[in-house]
């Protein structure tokens, strides 16, 4: 499998407002979203207007490796307004790594990203979305996912580098037998972060999970609104976990479950607390310093099992 974790190997690379790389491959249509709007009816159908920047990915055949995109801000005071569209054709399984970042720590950039994802019948998408910004950047990312019958999506969003302001919003509409699993992990420091995650279980036997991992450090405020609405006989679960690393930080977690269908089952659990002293002592008794112990626990808390 080819490496997908750096810009060099990206299928789509945009720096500031300029597309630096656009690498289509067999079975995958890749265009600037503005071009796609003119070229494909399918794109026009899902895009409200002609985008100014962003990508269009249409996966038409099964591919054996992940796709990757990278959108960077590298100059001061850039304001990106990205419109992406991803369509996965019926029965196709695809994995996408998406990286959005700032090349330097203080660029005062604004990144607004709107991504629409259409998963046709029985298709699946694993989307790993990583953000790495500077302390003066403001970021707003909005994702809307339509899951047709039998489609499934696993979305993992992670932002652990402190920035000025972060707003992450994801909404998924699920038809019959489809499933969506949204995981969001953020670490905020001197930052204001807002998370909005919503799943609409419209079809019978649809199921969705929202899993939030939030860490709030010095002068940070995190507010999360997570909602599952069951219109069909689906199953949904919300799990919100928060860790406060300092006293002048705030986490506010508001889970909401709403059902109109008596056959639906919705549950939620939420907890906010500090790092367990027992865990820190345990790791320190293995020779780690307090900082190393906290770092290990925090990284584990944010969700990805630490590999070798």
């Amino acid at each position: 499998m080819k490496s997908v974790r750096n810009a060099k190997s990206a299928n789509y690379l945009q720096i500031n407002h300029v597309i630096k790389k656009l690498l289509s491959e067999e079975g995958v249509i890749l265009r600037p979203s503005a071009e796609a709007y003119e070229e494909f009816e399918e794109a026009k159908k899902y895009l409200d207007k002609r985008p100014s920047e962003g990508y269009f990915i249409w996966v038409r055949q099964q591919i054996s490796h992940p796709l990757s995109t990278c959108i960077t801000i590298s100059s001061p005071n850039i304001h990106q307004n990205i419109n992406n569209l991803i369509i996965v054709d019926p029965g196709i399984n695809v994995e996408i790594y998406s990286i959005c970042n700032a090349a330097k720590p203080v660029l005062c950039g604004v990144h607004e990203g709107y991504t629409k994802i259409i998963l046709k019948e029985n298709s699946s998408l694993k989307l790993r979305h990583f953000h790495k910004w500077g302390v003066s950047d403001e970021v707003k990312t909005v994702t809307e996912v339509m899951l047709e019958k039998g489609a499934s999506m696993l979305s993992f969003y992670k932002c652990i580098s402190p920035l000025k302001k972060l707003s992450v919003s994801s909404t998924a509409f699920l038809e019959k037998n489809s499933s969506a699993n949204f995981e969001v992990s953020i670490l905020a420091k001197d930052e204001e972060a807002e998370l909005y995650e919503s799943l609409f279980l419209n079809g019978d036997n649809s199921n969705g999970i929202i899993k939030l991992r939030m860490i709030s450090d010095r002068n940070a405020k995190i507010t999360s609104h997570s909602k599952i609405v069951a219109n069909g006989a689906g199953i949904g679960h919300i799990e919100c976990m928060g860790l406060l690393l300092s006293n002048n930080s705030i986490i506010s977690s508001i889970p909401e479950i709403f059902t109109k269908n008596k056959e639906a089952t919705l549950t939620h659990e939420a907890s906010i607390g500090k790092i367990s002293e027992d865990e820190i002592n345990y790791l320190r008794s293995r020779g780690l310093t307090e900082e190393e112990a906290i770092s290990l626990i925090v990284t584990g808390f944010l969700g990805e099992t630490l590999l070798h």
């Binding site: 865990e279 290990l296 584990g300 070798h308």
Partner: peptide, 16 residues
Amino acid sequence: PPAIKNVKLSLLLKRI
């Protein structure tokens, strides 16, 4: 001993 979620035993052993 307390559970350390998402941290593999092999990783800790390599560290210590």
